[in-house]
Amino acid sequence: MEVELTQIDARHLAARAGDSAALALDRLSIASGEQVAVIGPSGAGKTTLLELIASALQPRRGKVELDGQNPWQMRSKMLQRLRGRLFLAPQTPPLPPRQRVVTAVLAGALPSMSLFASLRSLFYPIDIPGAHAALEAFDLAEKLFERVDRLSGGERQRVGLARALLTPASLWLIDEPLSSLDPNRAQQALSTLTANASQRGTTLIVTLHQVDAALANFPRIIGLRDGQMAFDLPVAEVTPERLRALYAQHEDELATALTRGIPMPEEPAAHGKHASVVTIQCR
């Protein structure tokens, strides 16, 4: 799916009128099938950008276009159909605790299922092989019939990502997919996402706290700072100077990521806006 944003001014619903804009973009266009990482310090507006593209957040001003269509001029039925063609994965996937993993993963395919099929699937999962393959890709196949509340935070996050592989979507918007994964799992998860996206021709937009993981896996990098676009460049042109400027006054976030040379684990906080305290999660 093709994404085109023009002269956007957007802020979160909770923000008050007088606050500075959470996100102000002049122009951003992402071609169909492109893979983009969005980086920047905490509070730069990365999540807001994803929600804006996912038509989960209506901009105050400006135009959002997905495949040339403006979602905010659609009737609600059409908008809901359009939403079925994109997949927004929040940082901590909210999953009902008593649900089985197979059902939680198959929930990704709901937009392509009829109501009857989705009800039948609650009793006898319709696409067990598909769910198995999706979990396998994230090394979770043995948890297929486990209950969600028996999973660790990292496993839950990977269940949320496995959903993507079953959606009929042609645009994946993934918020901080690595926040509760250890370095090996993190690299595996990113490779799985990028490989599957390019195989299907799906547009992939990922926000990342781990600068080195972004540089290593994505051909195009967008740097956000204070709701403004700092740069939008091919990965080869993202120099250490640019990164230092992007993270000025937030050096701790950059330093940890670069000196360790590994993706930086972060607390699985509900909205994940606090990265100043770095903890390593033990598994």
Partner: peptide, 14 residues
């Protein structure tokens, strides 16, 4: 679920 295009009843049941 709704944000990813499920219908209301699907979101209810899942």
């Amino acid at each position: 679920l709704l944000r990813n295009g499920s219908s209301r009843l699907q979101a209810f049941f899942y």
